[in-house]
Amino acid sequence: MAFYESIIIIRQDVSSADVDKIVDDLKQVIKNYDGNVVKTEYWGLRTLAYEIQNNKKGHYYFMGIEANKPLLDELDRKTKLSESIIRTSLVRVDAISKDPSPILRAKSSDDENIVDVTSNRN
């Protein structure tokens, strides 16, 4: 089996609970085809570079998986059938890093640099 990194973009009007359900369904497909989910990350609701099917934003979800050809075919079929998934990307890699992705690192460093300068003077 080979390692793959997949990014899934889900419509902006889908709730967080539904995003989790979509990803859980994909994880179940991976398990059914003897694949392995090595890493998952939710990157949040992000603005798209260009409008896709009248969507200006999308929920980004990253998955690092170990998969074989039949599994990849089934994932492709499932994502094409889903009306909530507007775009996917699948790239073969040599290994999947256990470290947070650069997007999550940038997000967490932005959160750490926020300083509350409000004053409680009465």
Rank of each mutant, 00 (worst) to 15 (best):
V93L: 00
V14I: 15
V37F: 02
A17F: 08
A17V: 11
I10E: 00
E41V: 06
S82R: 03
V23L: 02
D34Q: 09
L71I: 09
P70T: 08
I96A: 06
I22D: 01
K27W: 03
V115L: 14
A49E: 09
K69N: 12
K27P: 04
L81N: 13
A106V: 06
Y42T: 02
E74G: 00
Q53K: 10
E66F: 01
S82W: 03
A2T: 13
Q28V: 06
S89Y: 04
R11E: 10
R77E: 11
D73K: 05
Y61K: 00
K69H: 10
W43S: 05
P100Y: 10
N122R: 12
V93I: 01
E66G: 06
L81Q: 11
K69C: 10
A106I: 06
Q12N: 14
L104F: 07
D116G: 11
K78L: 10
R77G: 10
S84F: 04
T118F: 11
N54Y: 12
D94K: 09
K107A: 13
R121Y: 15
I86Q: 00
S109M: 14
E51R: 13
S97D: 13
V117M: 09
N55S: 13
I10F: 04
A49W: 05
V38W: 03
I103A: 10
N122S: 14
T47Q: 15
D18H: 06
M1K: 12
E112L: 13
H59K: 05
I30L: 08
E83H: 10
Y61P: 00
S84E: 14
S101C: 09
I8A: 04
G58F: 01
Y61A: 02
I30C: 07
G44R: 03
E51F: 06
D73L: 06
L75M: 10
